[in-house]
Design a protein around this nucleic acid. Structure first.
Length: 835
RNA sequence: GCGAAAGUGGCGGAAUUGGUAGACGCGCUGGAUUUAGGUUCCAGUACCGCAAGGUGUGAGAGUUCGAGUCUCUCCUUUCGCACCA
């Protein structure tokens, strides 16, 4: 047997990642190995990783994301599935504009160059993508269908324009969606967000709020965490809309003031009403009250982000108006309060200070009455002291509420609602926290909104025949605002309806639009006569979607909404776009998230050059389970390369050098041979489960390492010994192949003479898993005192007798009486003795 | 404040159904090979203890023959939400 060091020093036979990876990647490209077709008798498997923004170069977060996706896709190939794994580019977005301003590079050129570089990196990492389906969202042949579908939604009443208070990012000079505002700051610029009023296009995602909520229950393949976050975001609540009549003759002439409450059981405790500063009633009252006018200005025009309002002191002012209680007729004063949101409900609330903490604080501050109408029951054991804080629990019964006294929450809810309905002053209502999706952005580098604004006809859709509305790529950048607004040659067009001179929308879409439907376009790649085609039906739902947990709400909610809208337009089948979702933790470096927003990007290129793509992929998979965030350490890559070279490659080489291998005869194996064979098949079974069900690839690597340790310990050059080793090596290579596809492709060829593409996952030989003897653990009072080998399925009394003879066991039971003995067959015997 | 998840050696992590805690790897220690460094190979490596043995999964209780795993209280960290009426 040759010594290992001989192999590692032999330049011609040793593992050289560069040569191996280049050769294998060229073979894949030449053979079109990963080009997917719709003609197959295998079950389809659509495996998708969230496409990247082409920022310039890959970072370690990309490497993790795409390796995990690739491992899943390649494992499914081995399982005999017809796998589609496409890749594309989420190519619109702010960094291209920033680069244009900074380096005087046109955004299209900058973006295409980045794509070219990052594509080479992805190819060097050996991902099994069908590159024939590559797409970039900034190309007109992609976004023309986005414009087309937007107009479909427009015709179906899912699109509207309104002047709205928007989150204005003063640094990026753009509008942000609520989801893009984090702690009052822009999600990308981190600038303090201001409030501004602009005319905006909106998509009616709220039409689908209930369905988006309900369908979450059916998404068994999604992490509970993500579903919870979406549920909270949608924020469904059940309540009652109550109208407080307004006596005539006041400055605000209206029959009543409508509020929304989830606690109609506390209606009798209402002591004042509060409206938002933007509420029409407040504006009317302010018209004759300059003090109030100043207060409203402070509330609305103060550059205050919504999220900051939470920390603000509660402030308010009486409007002078008085409403009457819908049931008791009592006079109820109307106040303006800065904590009431115009955007939610009706922009007005009934204040019940005894049972709502905000109302309580406000009432205490302004000396408003506090009337308790709910009392804790004796059973609940709760106490309340209204002078200290509000009693907000629903565990209690009504008091001081006339005919409702004694009712519990749900009874009181129903009874009050019924009383209001009968008087025509209320109705049951379901409310959502979710708001419609504002999709207009005052940016250049995005998909143009296909609308022409005509002075006569209003907003007119661009006719389908004129799509796409192409974004001009020859533009001047001055740094602030959109260049489109300075290009009359582009925006001045005749109205498609009346022919009068009109202007194009110069706003572009939120880039979340592109990523809301790209997964349906890969199957229909290149279709020129429609957004999608029959191939979309073949590939259907994405079977496994892989991406960062930071997209839990934004992207995943929009994509679900789009899919339902596409379904209702007859474009796709099914209700949900993503069957299973793998939500990745982040790759951290010195505590910072490794992604585009965090500066230091952690370019994997030098690691790939030095240690090879397989080593980088393996180190990434071995570091931690997918859902967990972890701090990246480059040391693991060196160690992965060492393992691939010394433990895997050299061991296979050594085995092959020793010559031919005879057929394995499982019936005549020695005990040691059976042991190795058992470990081989245990490893296969574990890898199968970890890859397919648990999605823990770190433990797959660990199991193969343990198997190879066994192979290296196994010293048996007999024909059957070598046959058992051959089987172990084949298993190790095959199991590793989704993670390290290059080296394993070469080794598989060497071991079997066949291409690994033709290989199927090895079947576990159940017979090989059986043991003839096991190590039995003997405990005394739960502490391990002895271990010995016994025959499998040895009867209890024999095991017990053996245990009681054991010297060490005797020491611990000596002089004590045995109270009971627990026997777990083939595992453990616990002798319980008294002191 | 509310909600969710997580706390295991020097480090990353394993322990899947309540049954031997620390798999696998990194690092470290010793040895071999080497002119030397590196590479590679072998051995050791939770803590205390010469040993027998004892202790040990954030802290404390509980259930159990037996708890990293289940229950309760608390602490810490991370993430999400945050005047949503």
């Amino acid at each position: 047997m040759s010594k290992p060091e001989d192999i590692s020093r032999d330049e011609s036979r040793g593992y050289h990642h560069r040569a191996v990876e280049r050769e294998v990647q060229q073979r894949w490209m030449k053979n079109g190995t990963f080009v997917a077709t719709e003609v197959s008798d295998k079950p389809k498997f659509y495996c998708l990783s969230m496409f990247p923004y082409p920022s310039g170069q890959l970072h370690m977060g990309h490497v993790r994301n795409y390796t995990l996706g690739d491992v899943i896709g390649r494992f499914q190939r081995l399982q005999g599935k017809n796998v589609l794994q496409p890749m594309g580019w989420d190519a619109f977005g702010l960094p291209a504009e920033n680069a244009a301003i900074k380096h005087k590079v046109p955004p299209m050129k900058w973006t295409r160059e980045n794509i070219a570089y990052m594509k080479r990196q992805l190819q060097a990492l050996g991902f099994a993508y069908d590159w024939s389906r590559e797409l970039a969202t900034c190309e007109p042949e992609y976004y023309r269908w986005e414009q087309w579908f937007f107009l479909q939604m427009f015709r179906r009443g899912l699109v509207y324009k309104k002047a709205a208070m928007v989150n204005w990012d003063p640094v990026d000079q753009t509008v942000l969606a609520n989801e893009q505002v984090i702690d009052g700051r822009g999600w990308r610029s981190n600038a303090l967000v201001e409030r501004r009023e602009l005319a905006q296009w909106f998509l009616k995602i709220t039409d689908y709020a209930q369905e988006l909520l309900d369908c979450l229950d059916g998404l068994d393949g999604w992490p509970e965490k993500i579903k919870t976050m979406q549920r909270n975001w949608i924020g469904r609540s059940e309540g009652v809309q109550v109208t407080f009549p307004l006596p005539a003759g006041q400055v605000y002439e209206s029959a009543g003031l409508t509020v929304y409450t989830t606690r109609p059981d506390t209606l009798m405790g209402t002591t004042y009403l509060a409206v938002a500063a933007q509420h029409p009633l407040a504006l009317a009252a302010a018209a004759t009250n300059s003090e109030l006018q100043r207060f409203l200005e402070e509330c609305s025009q103060g550059k205050v982000a919504e999220a900051d309002m939470a920390k603000m002191e509660k402030r308010g002012m009486a409007t002078g108006l008085v409403a009457s209680h819908p049931l008791s007729g009592e006079a109820i004063p109307v106040w303006v309060a800065n904590f009431v949101l115009m955007e939610y409900g009706s922009g007005a609330v009934m204040a019940v200070p005894a049972h709502d903490q905000r109302d309580w604080e406000f009432a205490v501050k302004y000396g408003l009455p506090i009337k308790q109408v709910i009392a804790p029951t004796d059973v609940s054991g709760e106490t309340c002291d209204i002078s200290e804080q509000a009693y907000t629990s629903k565990q209690g019964i009504c008091i001081h509420s006339d005919e409702f006294d004694g009712l519990a929450f749900q009874q009181a809810f129903d009874a009050v609602a019924e009383a209001l309905i009968q008087r025509g002053l209320g109705e049951r209502q379901v409310n959502f926290r979710l708001r419609d999706w504002g999709v207009s952005r005052q940016r250049y580098w995005g998909c143009p909104i296909p609308i022409i604004n005509c002075g006569q006809c209003g907003p007119v859709p661009v006719p389908d025949a004129q799509l796409p509305v192409e974004l001009p790529t020859q533009v001047e950048f001055e740094g602030v605002g959109s260049p489109l607004k300075k290009m009359p040659e582009w925006y001045q067009v005749p109205c498609p309806q009346c022919g009068a001179s009109a202007e194009r929308e110069t706003d572009t879409f939120d880039t979340f639009m592109e990523s809301s439907w790209y997964y349906t376009r890969f199957p229909a790649s290149g279709a020129t006569t429609g957004m999608l085609d029959a191939r979309t039906k073949y590939w259907g739902q994405v079977d496994h979607y892989v991406g960062g947990e930071e997209h839990a709400i934004l992207h995943l909610l929009y994509a679900r909404f789009f899919y339902k809208a596409m379904r209702d337009a007859g474009l796709v089948e099914g209700d949900e776009p993503f069957h299973k979702l793998l939500s990745l933790g982040m790759v951290l470096k010195d505590g910072a998230k490794m992604s585009k927003s965090a500066g230091d990007a952690g370019d994997p290129q030098h690691l790939m050059d030095k240690h090879g793509a397989d080593a980088v992929r393996m180190a990434m998979m071995f570091a931690a389970p997918p859902e967990q965030s972890f701090e990246w350490s480059e040391r693991g890559v060196e160690s992965a390369e060492r393992w691939l070279r010394t433990r895997l490659w050299n061991t296979v080489e050594r085995h092959l050098e020793a010559g031919q291998v005879v057929e394995l005869k499982t019936s005549t194996l020695s005990a040691a041979q059976k042991d190795l064979r058992r470990i081989t098949h245990e490893t296969l079974a574990k890898a199968d489960d970890d890859y397919g069900r648990r999605l823990t690839f770190n433990t797959v690597v660990a199991a193969v390492m343990a198997l190879m340790n066994e192979v290296n310990r196994f010293d048996d050059e007999s024909p059957q010994g070598r046959a058992v080793v051959r089987e172990a090596l084949c298993a190790a290579v095959l199991i590793m192949s989704p993670i390290t596809p290059h080296i394993t492709e070469v080794l598989w060829q060497k071991l079997t003479g066949e291409a690994i593409d033709k290989a199927r996952w090895l079947a576990v030989d159940v017979a090989a898993l059986t043991k003839t003897s096991i190590e039995l653990v003997v405990q005394v009072n739960g502490k391990v005192r002895s271990k010995f080998q016994v025959d499998m399925d040895m009867p209890r009394d024999e095991v017990e007798a053996l245990a009681l003879q054991d010297e060490n066991v005797q020491r611990f039971i000596d002089g004590k009486s045995i109270r009971k003995v627990i026997y777990v067959p083939n595992k453990l015997l616990n002798i319980v003795v008294s002191a």
